[in-house]
Simulated assay, not measured.
Amino acid sequence: MNTIGITMGCPAGIGPEIILKFFADPTLSASLQPVVLGDAAVLERCAAELGIGCPPISDWQPGRPFTERTIPVLNLSQLPETEFSWGHPTMETGRAMAHYIETGVDLIQKNIIDGITTCPIAKTTLNSAGYDYPGHTEMLAHLTGTRDVVMMMAGTRLKVTLVTIHCALKTVPAMITSEAVNSLIDVTSNSLVRDFGIPAPKIAVAGLNPHAGEDALFGREERDIIRPAVEAAKRRTIDVSGPFPPDTVFYSAASGNYDAVVCMYHDQGLIPFKLLHFDDGVNVTLGLPIVRTSVDHGTAYDIAGKGVASHLSLAAAVNLADSICTNRKKFDSCPKQ
């Protein structure tokens, strides 16, 4: 059984609520062993104020057995009620959410837990607390000494990876290179094999321009940059095709013809993905030496403390982290030719 640490995210956001609802869900698999890395008092306050009928919270310490039918919590902060209110982060909540992440990585590196699932954080609050990272992914890359990381959005019907992520749309064409596309195809293929247990994955590559350039009529990126990368990947025996027109490739992938789509920019991949997986999508960070999945949404300060947040993305993320841990152990234990 894998132990998955759930970092609580920003205490003032919906992280505490969705964690409680996750543990209260009667469909929670008995084969899962999640542990919360967060603040027990915040969880108790959230349960009381929102009337969430969840299992009792129990104190957990590394190396100790888990108490059945409880919410095991490694208590990492003591935030007084006067320090914050729902929907209003502070410097103290920023420090706390960063500490949860740091502890999660440390516990994995010490082989105490197997992976982490992260609840949402607020980037501006993280920065105000003295942590100079754009977000979770960059912080995890720094903590693990990783240079190149990739964001995959994963669902049961569609998986997408992105050549460019958080940048202005006008800067995207200059950032798309054959090397970047090539590297992403490799990382995507390797993850589908090792993390998702797909022995011979099929990958589609989306074009940048309408109709994938229409033979360079609407742009030359497909002909000059993307197609050469695809052909190079094929020579490495990767089953990859494209570039395809973006307006049709996602339908084809969601219909089961491809295991993942390599996308050129953020919204190209995330619009179709969230159309299909708005409630149960999972953000997976590829390239890290640790297993990390995340909910596919933000802190949602506007609804924090109102009892309306859905825990489905968290449930999907924990289950996927557990599955990836198992798949990696199987893959890594098999003799390689």
Rank of each mutant, 00 (worst) to 15 (best):
E102M: 11
D59Q: 12
V163G: 00
A168G: 06
Q78W: 11
A206F: 12
F250N: 04
S183G: 06
M97A: 14
P246S: 15
G256R: 07
V284C: 02
P245F: 07
K329C: 03
Y265W: 09
P55S: 12
H166V: 11
T90P: 00
I71S: 09
F273Q: 09
C167V: 14
R147Y: 09
C334G: 06
F273W: 12
P272T: 12
S31M: 05
F244E: 09
K274G: 11
S77Y: 07
V105G: 01
S85Q: 13
M175N: 08
I290Q: 06
R223G: 04
T156Q: 15
G281P: 01
I14H: 02
V172S: 02
G281Q: 02
A40K: 12
L276N: 07
I226S: 02
P26A: 06
D215V: 08
V187L: 06
S323T: 14
D195Q: 06
R236N: 15
G104K: 00
G298S: 10
P16T: 06
I225N: 03
Y265F: 15
R236C: 10
V35N: 02
F196S: 04
G281K: 01
P289W: 12
A216S: 15
T146I: 07
A206K: 01
L140P: 03
V73H: 03
H266C: 11
P34K: 08
Q78T: 13
E214V: 02
I198G: 08
E222H: 04
R95V: 14
N327P: 03
T103L: 09
D132K: 09
K170E: 13
A200P: 00
G307E: 07
G5V: 00
T67H: 10
T27Q: 15
V295P: 00
I113C: 03
A309P: 00
F244I: 01
I14Q: 03
W86E: 14
D302Q: 08
T171E: 15
A216L: 04
